[in-house]
Design a protein around this nucleic acid. Structure first.
Length: 281
DNA sequence: CTTTGACCTCGATT
DNA sequence: AAATCGAGGTCAA
């Protein structure tokens, strides 16, 4: 799928394997989790946390995507103890082995390799490509998936029907998948909106806003569970979405945006007052 | 059942 | 310029 934001703010989309326009539209809506009503969940978030009123300035349209489970799993296997730049490089390497789709504005695009293609990659290949100890996580997980009844991809998708804890338990049987990675996969691809991936950043947020009494203590598996519970009891069934929004708002790039927006409002207001207009608020 | 260290690589920091 | 740190963790002892 290709997406492009146009001048007027609309998005044009192209599904490369779509059978019809209706089919392409359906797949796009599925990917965007369009069934989830943002106004409904923002109401819940805002009612229990005043900070969401401010986040709405920039993030009110933000959605948690419904990604392909296999692609999501492999991506987060790459993410452990790692930085975004290198994760991107690693995922690009794996993707380059998938079927070539076409070139857009100089960038080559490939389909994410299905399990049969992934199984052709050796641990040695991955190590040479700079995966480090994560190489054996990938090959181990691919092998484990292929031994599942139904062939792996189906097994992964079937997890969408289960409850969060069952999903986490199932994912954690795969090599390289621990609590944090399992929660990411559950939230971003397996229909578990209450999954809370607790890493050092979320820990910072949590001890600042939700559990100040725990500030300063070390992050242990037990405390991860405490944090997850705190998020769910505060924000409800879509706590994972709330957590993602708070997480995004903490990113330097977003902070800059929020800040500039704040100043834009001030300037706008000042300009209006200068022109003798009444302030609407 | 909790705690600790090793594990690959790559930039940024010192 | 060479050494050290730590990055959205996991696993095994």
């Amino acid at each position: 799928m290709s997406l492009k934001q146009l001048q007027d703010g609309d998005i044009s989309y192209c599904l490369h394997h779509a059978t019809s326009d209706a089919n392409a539209r359906m797949e796009l809506l599925d990917f965007l989790n369009a069934d989830v009503s943002l106004s409904d969940i923002w109401k819940v978030f805002s009612d229990s946390d005043a900070r969401f009123a401010e986040l709405a300035l920039h993030l009110r349209g933000a959605r948690v995507l419904r990604q392909d489970p296999l692609e999501c799993l492999i991506q987060f296997l790459c993410s452990s103890n790692n930085n975004i730049k290198r994760i991107t490089k690693m995922v690009d390497y794996i993707s380059s082995l998938g079927n070539y789709l076409g070139t857009v504005e100089g960038f080559q695009f490939h389909a994410f390799p299905p399990l049969e293609q992934l199984s052709l990659i050796s641990e040695e290949d991955l190590r040479k490509a700079g995966f480090g100890y994560r190489a054996k996580y990938i090959t181990g997980t691919v092998t484990s998936l292929q031994s599942k009844p139904g062939g792996g991809a189906e097994w992964l998708e079937s997890l969408r029907q289960l409850d969060l804890q069952e999903v986490i338990d199932a994912l954690c049987t795969l090599p390289g998948v621990g609590l944090k990675v399992a929660a990411c996969i559950a939230l971003f691809s397996l229909d578990q909106p209450d999954a809370i991936p607790v890493d050092t950043h979320v820990w910072q947020i949590a001890t600042r806003y939700l559990l100040p009494e725990l500030a300063g203590s070390q992050l242990t598996p037990k405390l991860c569970i405490r944090v997850a519970e705190a998020f769910v009891s505060r924000y409800g069934k879509y706590a994972g979405w709330a957590q993602t929004l708070l997480f995004i708002a903490e990113l330097p790039s977003q902070k800059a945006l929020l800040h500039s927006h704040f100043w834009n409002i001030r300037e706008h207001k000042a300009a209006k007052e200068k022109n003798g207009e009444a302030d609407a608020r």
